[in-house]
Amino acid sequence: MQYMLLIHVDEAAMAAAAPTASPDKAYEMGQPFMAYNEALKKAGAWVAGDRLAPSSSTTRVRMLGDRTEVLDGPFADTKEQLGGYYIIEAQDLDAAIQWAARCPAAQNRAVEVRPIWKAQ
């Protein structure tokens, strides 16, 4: 099965923790993540994984009749924002939970483990 690991981050807290860093710098992938990515690849569990640019850069699009409505900002203002994701190949939920537990993001926040329904 494939699972998506969704990593939610508190962008405000991250900015407060590194006030001097530029937004790009604050989102730079740390060493623990590089090691984790390497472990996923070595185990053959890696499918995809990326961090996302800050939610302030997001754009919402929807159709209103035949008109395209474009809005800036995230879908909902929440305390935490989606900051990155992995797609992994795992035999079952237990295996996926083990990968989620090893993810550096699980050290200080919860990682959501979501099964993927593969398009046929």
Binding site: M1, Y3, A90, Q91, D92, L93, D94, A96, P115
Partner: peptide, 8 residues
């Protein structure tokens, strides 16, 4: 079924 909870 959906979450892939194992039978083991």
């Amino acid at each position: 079924r959906q979450a892939g909870i194992p039978f083991r």
